[in-house]
């Protein structure tokens, strides 16, 4: 399931690895220690994990604010281009 993969990616970040186990799906990742550096890293790792590319309009702090927010953004991208997303994920 998407959220599990998101959680895995989040937990692999230097900024959050120490607190990954205590994060709820709606926990604010910035409050938990995510820096702007870390957010950029998170974006790249999510794109690699899901084979997607976040469009410009999604490159905001809010998109990466919580595991829920990230999962919602990914779901939205997949709904917009299901074929592309599936192809990407298989890469």
């Amino acid at each position: 399931m998407d959220k599990d993969i998101v959680r895995q990616v989040v937990g692999s970040l230097n900024d959050l690895s120490a607190r990954a186990a205590t994060l709820r799906d709606d926990s604010n990742l910035y409050d938990a220690g995510l820096s702007s550096f870390g957010a950029a890293e998170l974006m790249i790792e999510l794109e690699a994990a899901f084979g997607i590319e976040f469009p410009r309009r999604m490159l905001s702090r809010d998109t990466f604010g919580s595991i829920d927010a990230i999962a919602a953004a990914i779901a939205e991208l997949r709904a917009a281009a299901p074929a592309d997303a599936a192809m990407g994920a298989g890469r």
């Binding site: 702007s36 957010a39 950029a40 890293e41 974006m43 790249i44 410009r56 490159l59 905001s60 702090r61």
Partner: peptide, 17 residues
Amino acid sequence: PFFGRPGELMATGQRSQ
């Protein structure tokens, strides 16, 4: 002037904070 697409995210983060 952060570089590339991750840079755009960093730039918006810098502005919003």
